[in-house]
Structure formats: structure tokens, C-alpha cells
């Protein structure tokens, strides 16, 4: 079963992330991914995440596919105009990529090249629409394509956003223009997530809840302060703060596993964003009983 079929099957899905390196040494990332081959249903490859210049998502997805892994190609609107975006999507298809996650992307001033010209010619919604068009064999101006790509399209949603309403409106719109699954921002507050799910259920589209392994109490506090829609409950912060230096990863994994176990009843999968801790993902899956 490929990822698209698994989505339809109703199976509880697990996706993880591969962050391309800043440079060309890619073997380590690929090896780590390979370790998860049988445990994970898809690998998101981030596209210059946080506006930091790195190896490209397209190339890494292609390499994953070559190794028989299932890549989810993340594509953002910050760096390419509508011509390049459409073209890269076609390139992705011929390089064996079948799943695409479409995002707007962070603003360049947040990254390591703040002087860059932001493009944002399209945004996530319009790019989803355009991609759906490509799937039907037309470019965005209505010109016929010679052979059409077939993608399983995904999008993102922030279940902790406040106010939530605009997110839901936008989510609905994304579905309207072709999103077939969603991955969410990191979830720590299950109550909030449950409320979100109650409202999002009506759309009938699979949602994979986001999981980020906590690395420290500082990280938790930082996210609470800075990251939109993320609120780490005090009890987790305390657990992290009390953990001894060598045991923080263990505690983080324990928290992650707890969240995943609880999410099983709420949504159709989890999306794990290891942020450099790819090596702990197998352990996390084991702890949460998904191994």
C-alpha cells in the first residue's frame, strides 16, 4: 500500500520528517530514515525550513524514493514564483515523488538570509488549486499538459491557533481545492486538540497530529512564548525541568509517547517532527506502542 492508499484505508498513520542538511552530506539522513522504513508510512522532506538555506527537498525526496521509502515532498511559496512552482511539481513527479505537502512558508526575515526577496507569488491555497489543476492535466493558465502527474496532496493546519476560526475557514478552503490530508503544528495540549478535532471532523479528511519531542524545559518555554498555537502544559515543563541532564531525551520521549497514545483515539495519525533528534524516533514509536 502506498501512502495515498493507506490514507483511504483508515489505518492509523505515522509520518516523520527528514531535514535536509546544510551541505551535501546526505548519507546520515538517509540512513536514519532507512531505519524507520517499516515503522513509518511517509517521510516529509522539509523545504528550506525556517527560511534557512539547505539542500533541496526535491533532491532528497528523489533519493528517498530511490531507496524505496515513501517521500512527502514539502513545497513552499516563499522562494519560487508560479512558473517555478508548477515546473518543480512536474519535476517531482518524474523523479518518482507521489505525495506533496503544500505550505506558504516562513518569511525570509526569520531565517539566515533575511535580505532575500520574498516571493509569495502564490500561497498555500492557490498553489493547492494550481496543483489540482496539474493533476487534471492543465497548467494554471489552462494550457494542456503532455501527460499529467498524479499527486496525493496534503496541507497543514495549526490546531492551537487563536483565534481558531480563520484556520478552520482556511482549512475548509484547502480541502475544497484538493487537500486530501492534513498535518498539524506540534500538539501538547490534548484538550485544545480535542476541541479542534471536534470542529475539524466534519470535513472528513485525515488529520495527522504533530509531535515534537521536547528537548528541555527551556525549549518548552520558548515555544510557549514564541511559536504560534503551541502551548506546552506546565506539567510537562516541570517533568523536563526535573529531568537529570542525561535523562532528558528519555523524559521527552516518554511525554511524546503519552501524547501519541492519547491521540490515537482523536485523529488518524501522527506526524513526528524530530528537529535533529531523528535517532530517537524508533524509541518514541516503541514507547508509544506503535512499533
Amino acid at each position: 500500500m502506498n501512502f495515498s492508499e493507506k490514507l483511504k484505508s483508515g489505518k492509523f498513520l505515522i509520518t516523520s520528517e527528514v531535514g535536509p542538511p546544510k551541505g551535501i552530506n546526505i548519507d546520515k539522513s538517509l540512513d536514519e530514515a532507512e531505519l524507520l522504513k517499516e515503522k513509518v508510512d511517509g517521510f516529509n522532506v522539509t523545504d528550506l525550513q525556517s527560511s534557512v538555506m539547505r539542500l533541496g527537498s526535491l533532491a532528497v525526496c528523489h533519493l528517498l524514493a530511490k531507496r524505496g521509502l515513501e517521500p512527502i515532498f514539502q513545497i513552499i511559496c516563499r522562494d519560487r514564483n508560479r512558473l517555478a512552482l508548477q515546473s518543480d511539481l512536474l519535476s517531482a513527479y518524474v523523479l518518482g515523488i507521489r505525495n506533496v505537502l503544500i505550505l506558504t512558508g516562513d518569511h525570509p526575515v526569520l531565517g539566515d538570509h533575511p535580505e532575500a526577496k520574498p516571493v509569495f507569488d502564490l500561497d498555500s491555497v492557490s498553489l493547492l488549486k494550481v496543483t489540482s489543476g496539474l493533476i487534471e492535466g492543465k497548467d494554471m493558465k489552462g494550457n494542456d499538459l503532455d501527460g499529467k502527474p498524479d499527486f496525493c496532496l496534503g496541507a497543514v493546519v495549526n490546531p492551537g491557533a487563536d483565534p481558531l476560526e480563520p484556520q478552520l475557514v482556511k482549512m475548509e478552503k484547502k480541502i475544497e481545492v484538493g487537500a486530501r490530508f492534513f498535518q498539524t503544528q506540534a500538539v501538547y495540549d490534548l484538550k485544545k486538540f480535542e476541541e479542534f478535532m471536534k470542529k475539524a471532523e466534519q470535513f472528513g479528511v485525515p488529520i495527522l497530529g504533530g509531535i515534537v519531542i521536547l528537548k528541555s524545559s527551556g525549549m518548552a518555554r520558548y515555544m510557549n512564548e514564541k511559536v504560534a498555537g503551541v502551548s506546552v502544559p506546565e506539567k510537562y515543563i516541570k517533568m523536563m525541568a526535573e529531568a537529570k541532564k542525561g535523562e532528558r531525551a528519555k523524559v521527552g520521549i516518554q511525554i511524546g509517547a503519552e501524547l501519541i497514545r492519547d491521540m490515537k483515539d482523536l485523529c488518524q495519525g501522527v506526524h513526528i517532527m524530530p528537529l535533529g533528534w531523528e535517532r530517537y524516533v524508533p524509541e518514541l514509536l516503541k514507547a508509544s506502542g506503535l512499533d
Binding site: H107, P108, V109, P114, E115, A116, K117, P118
Partner: peptide, 10 residues
């Protein structure tokens, strides 16, 4: 070149 586009926004 290259231009510093962050000037415009910041």
C-alpha cells in the same frame, strides 16, 4: 547586487 530586501520590511 544582491539587494537587501529585508530593509523594506524591517
Amino acid at each position: 547586487s544582491p539587494r537587501d530586501h529585508s530593509k523594506i520590511i524591517t
